[in-house]
Design a binder for these strands. Sequence first.
DNA 1: CGCTAACATGTTAGCGATAACATAATATCA
DNA 2: TGATATTATGTTATCGCTAACATGTTAGCG
Lengths: 344, 344
Amino acid sequence: MISDKKKRVTIKDVAQAAGVSTQTVSRVMNKFSYVSEDTRKRVEEVVERLGYNPSALARSLIQRRSYTLGVVTSGLKHIGPSRTLNGVADKADELGYMLLMKELDNFDNSRVGEAIDSLLARQVDGIVWAAPEIGDNHSWLDERLDRIPVPVIFLSMRPRKGVFSVATDNYQGGAMAIRHLLGCGRKKIGHISGPLAWWEAVERKRAWRETLIEAGLDAREEHCAEGNWSAASGEQAFIRLLESYPDMDAVFVANDQMALSVLREAARRGVSVPSQLAVVGFDNIPESAYFHPSLTTVFQDLQLLGEQAAQIVVEMIQARQQEQPTFAQSKFIQPALIIRESSQ
Amino acid sequence: MISDKKKRVTIKDVAQAAGVSTQTVSRVMNKFSYVSEDTRKRVEEVVERLGYNPSALARSLIQRRSYTLGVVTSGLKHIGPSRTLNGVADKADELGYMLLMKELDNFDNSRVGEAIDSLLARQVDGIVWAAPEIGDNHSWLDERLDRIPVPVIFLSMRPRKGVFSVATDNYQGGAMAIRHLLGCGRKKIGHISGPLAWWEAVERKRAWRETLIEAGLDAREEHCAEGNWSAASGEQAFIRLLESYPDMDAVFVANDQMALSVLREAARRGVSVPSQLAVVGFDNIPESAYFHPSLTTVFQDLQLLGEQAAQIVVEMIQARQQEQPTFAQSKFIQPALIIRESSQ
DNA sequence: CGCTAACATGTTAGCGATAACATAATATCA
DNA sequence: TGATATTATGTTATCGCTAACATGTTAGCG
């Protein structure tokens, strides 16, 4: 295989071949400026013939904008984050932006600065921070955020004053699940939470506790077990919960994967779902409709979450372009309860 | 919120503040060149103080390389493609590359040119084509590929002469599944395939047919039903298959999601798995270990697939840099059989 | 017919960095 | 001690494009 040493076709080559200035070629490529029909035709022909593809890089450099968004993700191997990324990608594409990705797994705060710098070095016009809030992994924000010269939007983050964010309304989702179980006549509702370092897990658990208390029922710590989102951890948590809360008649599980384990372990032990134990999950992964029994769950639209994030950050970019002020907002996306066999 | 109108700190600002030339600053930033200890200190201090972050854009322009890979993905909302992307991202990060993403769902070949151009316009050093081969969606390759001036590697594509590719060995995976079932004494093995426009689905089906024939057994068209990878389609396919092949004693299902439906539908109809019907899936999604019964499946390492792709494309880039020739190769990654309850 | 407005094109400068070359000071060695 | 190598720094010319300004040409109007 012979390596092609063909040089890149530049605007100069086109200009020369068409017998015009580079500026004229630039005008043809970017429309909306005075070029005679005649010249336009001629230039377009040359462009076609030489296969000219303008360097977005050079353009970004002079225009000081790249039509590129930076996306910081984490846990991409899980379905949730990749759904979100998909939403961001779709909307960005629709709005004429590309995505520059930075995966940031198990990160300590020291790697954050690096990640941001590497995005900014490439002139991204805005940043979508799609790594979830875990422990204090967003603490860098206080001292670093206002030194970032482009708009940033955060996903799945606890609302903060002066910061743009979008998240599923985890509290509402949890409350819906519990109210549904209450509506089905259940009174002893346990909870298998996600890892409580996660903001989202805390919110779902808080919804469980507060909704039960509002209804005048018990929500003690022994009625709850903590998992780490994985099916394996769900099994363990369920086993512990069965011991600490033996007469429980329903369980709200913080995600579908752990709920799957609950269904299986219940089947194994001859605990009948839903008659003896009602189960409600969270997420609505595609498989959950095909669990046995099918799983009642809280649907969160992560695709939409991503789309909204991209939309908002682009609006922020445009506002800044036009020197309009923007006002930080924390947006919530409402989840929906999907009732299936496991709860009734 | 007042918008910061602070200008970007450039190499010139640093040079001026430190009382040296921009070239010297450049030398300090890039190491490995003669700079006195004294000057280096001074410049580094200024860099720190002003918060200078060199423009990768400007550097890319003059160096004609961006340390960025283009990734073309498809179906990111599914777990498979995002696992692969995760692999690419991890390895790219490790090798000092960033990722410029282009999502290409339901694409016709006309959008392909656009996608490639938009990546090339941003000077990507290489391209990872992670959109699977479906129908003739790779036909553009013949006439376009050698006009792409950077290395390209294709994932999950039928091997082609003169083209770099990496894929799971789907045929081997299928063969493993069938041989395992034969080893368990099954003789009437049905198949639920993926959509046969997909190369991967075709390979798995071919493995089913040929392995059975090698063993002197039947593999007729009525023993097979086609799904579209989704759990819903799996259910339908299984129902059809039960009619066209009523005395089947095992079924090889082309992915785990469809296999999940098979397990559920079997349970519903009182068909006992594995005693009456053995089931083997493909993929090893995390949930499959927690199906009831747990699912025997063929594990394909998509993370590794992505990593290998990134690794190879970077090697190609380096080879080209040093004007070494490269020789196209089609690489296969071996899957592994994971035996669980559903087959024995 | 002269004056302005709209159209059409070209020229120059510069985005922010590095390559390539030039220069000067110091160190090393025959 | 002069020649050569090493170290340290600066100058100039791009990379490929567009902004900003300049200049000409044609059309429209009172």
